[in-house]
Design a protein around this nucleic acid. Sequence first.
DNA 1: ATTTAGACTTGGAACAATCTTT
DNA 2: AAAGATTGTTCCAAGTCTAAAT
Length: 524
Amino acid sequence: FPGKPLKLSLATEEIATFYAKMLDHEYTTKEIFQNNFFHDWRKEMTSEEQEIIQDLAKCDFSEIHKYFVEKSEARKALPKEEKQKLKEEADKIQEEYGYCLLDGHREKIGNFKTEPPGLFRGRGDHPKMGMLKKRIMPEDVIINCSKDSKIPEPPEGHKWKEVRFDNTVTWLASWTENIQNTLKYIMLNPSSKLKGEKDWQKYEVARRLKDVVHEIRARYRADWKSKEMKNRQRAVALYFIDKLALRAGNEKEEGETADTVGCCSLRVEHIKLHPRLDGQEHVVEFDFLGKDSIRYYNKVSVEKRVFKNLQLFMKNKDPSDDLFDRLTTNFLNKHLQHLMDGLTAKVFRTYNASITLQEQLKALTNPEDNVAGKLLSYNRANRAVAVLCNHQRSVPKTFAKSMEILQAKIDAKKKQVEEAQQELKKAEDELEDTKDAKAEANVEKKKKLLKRLEEQLARLNVQATDKEENKQIALGTSKLNYLDPRISIAWCKKFGVPIEKIYNKTQREKFAWAIAMANEDFEF
DNA sequence: ATTTAGACTTGGAACAATCTTT
DNA sequence: AAAGATTGTTCCAAGTCTAAAT
């Protein structure tokens, strides 16, 4: 060092491997990441190492990087039996530690391992990216179980931080994570009875909202005229939450996380007002980073009174000032609680997502379609919800390429169709001339061929459209968290689509409660 | 009334397994 | 059978919201 190998102490070496493994990742090119990493790394070095290693730029991690790349390739290249053996070992661990006994039932645990040490990867512009996430020791872990149960033994030579018997919470173990100083938990798998019941409850609350949402809308519209500024802001915010499915937007500690906002934390700089835009009146242009630093961009025509209120809220403010300066999520939720038992801001997202799915399925499903066609309609309905909730993903790495391949297939099919058309024409001309039975049979044959090819082409086109429309849209989150599964199950039953076509094994386990409950006339 | 701690849901990316094509 | 694409699973960060503390 520099330029020649340096033997590191064990701890220093381990941390170096964390960085080396990430060399291909964009993170390691970011200055904040590098600085945070280097700062934390040096803290763990011996004084000799600190003396030698003073500049990250002079460290060459490529040997370590290479080692891990080779190691992972070697693992991939392992013979079948070896892989099988590894899998069996993993299954054995899962079998031993992956389950717990709750109220006499064996239940699967969601995450039964503590998180391994590594470098913190925040999302978006996170001030803490690159910091060292420390190894969790038994002394950090709190165990929560029944008094009369077999209390898990800590590893040899160690003890737990605490063992408690709290049956008012659902977690089995917890520890404090050192980056944000927050708690992490070991909890049950979504397939468990406990989680399933909570999930059901969640949708039942959303269904109750359906009964009163008209009153609530009338109420917030009236409040747009309230004399109390606080209430006006609340009413406008609620309108956004309802109409645009925005998140509540809790306050965040500045400098601790990436700068993101939700409805109540919107700032003046996040919206632009256009009295007139593209032939529409009272247009609000939203542009902000939401959860996970996903951009929300939308131009919406709003009611005149909302527009006027926004102008008022923005008056004499700096771009970095809060749009709803008198409003907190707590104040909003207190109000909602008062309007309906159990109502909070996020219930609107659940309600609007589920009702949208139900309506879209009704509008898009054609009973005459085959299963593939119906599934396309289902995907489209699902997509409408994902768009509403702004569930975006980055374009898959292989997207352009696989699109090209599909396009090539389409072009080839088009050619075939054209050829078939010509063939048919020829056959028809021949029939014209000869008028014999053989020629007629030939015309029929060519017609059939053409029809089949055209159908294949149509299917490919649909597939391409579907793929293109789905390019930047993530369907998973809405499917798993926002759409009442009973709507989908009822739809499947009604139109003869097997449930496995829309829910895979894990999803069916998670939604077991709904599968047992919903018949074809379930209505959200 | 406001802040903080705690508990739980929601979120996309990374990784792993499986299916399809060559 | 290898490679490539697709689908399923795991990971863990980042939200929401309530209750307790101040």
